[in-house]
Design a protein around this nucleic acid. Structure first.
Lengths: 117, 117
DNA sequence: TTGACATATTCCTATATAGGAATATAAATA
DNA sequence: TATTTATATTCCTATATAGGAATATGTCAA
């Protein structure tokens, strides 16, 4: 079996670094494809293709304005990622406490044994 | 060019749904591979391989205890994902305000024109 | 030493891209 | 209508998996 489709969900879509850059650029506000091409310095088809994937998973939404297409970030979908990562919050919060607990655990688990190796 | 390596960074590592399940299981605390196999119900080599990727990008760390290997979540790396997603916080916070603004924008952008089509 | 147990690694293959190049589509404008 | 401008799509190929199967490695216990 191959890897999961990039369009399977938000996680797969943002796995590609370039798609994260696109989203970061769009964080400055809604903008047409041309602006993104200018900011990112990539070939236009490349930008459009990445936007297509982001659109398909719902990380961005579009609206037409004349011959331009204005893309913007869709917060809801990014919140999905945020919420998922947040469930591990306690693993980085209380850093000092954790280091202390870890040290105590280690002392219990590895009692000094003068006979082994 | 193919897709970026799953071991390129945390984002690529957690793109695979199964690896997210592994991390979620480990959220209950440090545990040996066998426990994960039991909880997830996957073949042992599959669990080990996913753990290998998570280990390589630093999302988990291991310590040996006899013939077991105890894996645990590494918060720091998950915080990277959390922080990235958090930069889009304003796109989902103040939801009601945003919907209101959007409606106003729409009214400005699409003036009623009795002459077109 | 010989099993038994716990985990990792190797080999194999089907598959889904990402990027480049070329082209198609759509809308404004002259 | 012909042209320009803005964006999307198609075609092609190299590549990195993910899973399955088999096996290797490492460690404890008798």
């Amino acid at each position: 079996m191959a890897r999961a489709a990039t369009t399977l969900d938000s996680f797969n879509a943002v796995a590609e670094p370039k798609r994260r850059y696109v989203l970061e650029a769009l964080a400055d506000g809604e903008m047409p494809v041309g602006d993104l091409v200018g900011r990112l310095g990539w070939p236009q088809p490349m930008v459009s293709k990445h936007l297509g994937v982001l659109k398909e998973v719902g990380l961005v939404s579009v609206r037409r304005d004349g011959r331009q297409r204005l893309y913007r970030v869709n917060g809801e979908k990014l919140k999905t990622i945020y919420d998922w990562a947040k469930m591990f919050e306690r693993f980085w919060a209380h850093q000092l406490l954790r280091i202390k607990e870890q040290a105590e655990r280690k002392n219990k688990e590895k009692p000094i044994n003068h006979f082994e190796r």
